[in-house]
Amino acid sequence: MNEVLLLHYEIRGGDFIHAGESSGHVKNILKRLGFHPNLIRRTAIAMYEGEINMVIHAGGGTADVKITPEQIEIRLADHGPGIKNLDLAMREGYSTASDSVRELGFGAGMGLPNMKKYADDLKIRTAVGKGTTVSILTKVSRNQG
C-alpha cells in the first residue's frame, strides 16, 4: 500500500439506517489492503461503537481515518452535548440511551468499554455543551507473531 491513506466521512445524527456505513467502508478497505483479520475486526468494532455513539448521543459528527502500514488512527468528532462524567461513562453498563434506542439493540452501556478493549489507545476529549472527540488507535504489531 501507499504510505498513508486518508478517509473522511460525515455521519448523520439519528439515522439508524445508514449508521455503520463508514465503519463498514473502512473495514472493506482494510481487507483489500490485506491487514490481519483480527486487526481489521478490532478496528471496525471500535469505530462502529464510536459511530453509533455519535448517531445516538451527539446528533452526528465526522470521522477521519488515517491508515498507514503500521497503524490505523480514527478520529470521531461531534458537536453534541459532551459527556459530563467520563469515568462513569467508561463503566460497563452505564448508559443514558432512551428506550427507543434500546429497542434497536443499543444502550447496553458497553460501547466505550468495547472501544477501550479493542483499541490499542483510546483518547476522549469532551466538554459539556461543546462536543466530544474520540481518538482510536489500533496497531498492526498487536496482531503479529
Binding site: 439508524f16 468494532i45 439493540g105 458497553m110
Partner: peptide, 22 residues
C-alpha cells in the same frame, strides 16, 4: 448488539429477535 460486539468469537452464528439494519 453491544453485548455481541463485546465477545469476538470464531466464525459464529448470531441468533436474535431484532430485525433492524444494525
Amino acid at each position: 448488539m453491544s453485548d455481541v460486539l463485546a465477545f469476538a468469537k470464531n466464525q459464529p452464528v448470531l441468533l436474535t429477535g431484532l430485525i433492524n439494519p444494525q
